[in-house]
């Protein structure tokens, strides 16, 4: 049996929305290099819609796949929907993650939360 589902491997090998979003108006970074995972999410929000999203990840296969899947799940969606994205939804969309890799999906959820928080604080300014 392979370590990861085919979906995880697909998103790991061909990550969607990878890179930097130069005109992002919400950016969030979570994790730390000491633990071996860092995710950075770039959001471009217009009219309360996530118009575009990109990510950069330092981490294992499931961290890269979780980031990729999370961007797919929120791209083009209303901000409110993006806010409600859970790590479980990310893991399920990937056809599951090994137990000890669930924290990768948590990191993806937190990265989006951090980026949304950054967007909101920029709006208040």
């Amino acid at each position: 049996m392979a370590l990861y589902s085919e979906k995880v491997m697909d998103h790991f090998r061909n990550p969607r929305n990878v890179g930097v979003l130069e005109d992002a108006n919400g950016v969030g970074t979570v994790g730390n290099a000491k633990c071996g995972d860092i995710m950075k999410m770039y959001l471009k929000i217009e009219d309360d819609i996530v118009k575009d999203v990109k990510f950069e990840t330092f981490g294992c296969g499931s961290a890269i796949a979780s980031s990729s899947m999370a961007t797919e799940l929120i791209k083009g969606k209303p901000v409110e929907e993006a806010r409600q994205l859970t790590n479980k939804a990310v893991a399920e969309a990937l056809d599951g993650l090994p137990d000890y890799k669930m924290h990768c999906s948590v990191l993806a959820q937190e990265a989006i939360e951090a980026a949304l928080k950054d967007y909101e604080s920029r709006q208040e300014e």
């Binding site: 491997m9 090998r13 981490g59 296969g61 890799k101």
Partner: peptide, 27 residues
């Protein structure tokens, strides 16, 4: 700047079986 498990998985795709001291490979 990179993490070992993803390095191993991509090398595996290229037909190279290797190992890493990364935390992600040890659980």
């Amino acid at each position: 700047g990179i993490e070992g498990e993803s390095l191993l998985l991509l090398l595996d795709d290229k037909g190279i079986a290797a190992s890493s001291g990364s935390a992600c490979t040890s659980g």
